[in-house]
Amino acid sequence: MKYLEDAVVVSNREIRPGIWSMWLRSPQICAATLPGQFVHVKVDASLTPLLRRPLSIGRVHGDQLELVWRVVGTGTDMLTDVRPGVTLNLLGPLGQPFTREVNASHRVLVGGGLGLPPLVYLYEWFREHDLPVTLHLGVSGRADIPLAEDDPLLNEIEITAENGEGFRKGLVTEPVLEQLQALETDGSLGSTALYSCGPWGLVNALQRTIPHSQLKLAEVSLEQQMGCGVGVCQGCAVIVEGGDTPYQLVCSDGPVFPLAAVHPPGVA
């Protein structure tokens, strides 16, 4: 069930330069949503921006949900001006969630930069269900971490930064590969589930470097410019193998797809 809900903004703050976190009270959507889904946000009642903005649902605590975004244009910039107490109209929850693999022996979550928020939601879901889970995050440096400096999660997850800056220095695929190799050694690779979200560079690197065909499950959540968010306009097509056509819609067929099946735009 999808809802059009006027959600009340509880807090809105800049957690890193240009990266914002907003909590909203949205009881209907919070009750219906699952990790991997998103909301389509009406940024302003005016005609600018014309379209809603799709944002992954980050943490869900009770009747409140978190949205995290980087300012990249008019719509995301306007969201930074929204004050607590104001309502934003949300359409959601939208899209297909991650497969919540409860029978896996291990769950490896891999986020790249702003790809982290939906994985935080998934991470907390697994933790609540007492299921073993590791969350990896890859960033350029500290300024790209989509968590506030006082966020307890900062000390729970495995962070790899290209610049180092006190974290493991390098690419996030390196510790992920090490963990998968260890799982292979103890014979549990085939019962491991991998979930990822991040820029195409990360998606391609995971496709190339990890033995995803040997895993129990390997999924990726994609983003794409969207019109309607519900499969009406067919604007958010991506190239995905295994469907009736070469294309699938990020908004309604996805955003979660099998890692091995997706192709970057323009590369068939």
């Binding site: 005609l47 600018t48 921006p49 410019q225 056509t245 735009p265 323009g266």
Partner: peptide, 14 residues
């Protein structure tokens, strides 16, 4: 099947 992506871009307010 429709056209290759990207298929849509906002040219606000159009």
């Amino acid at each position: 099947k429709g056209n290759d992506p990207p298929r849509l871009t906002e040219v606000s307010p159009g």
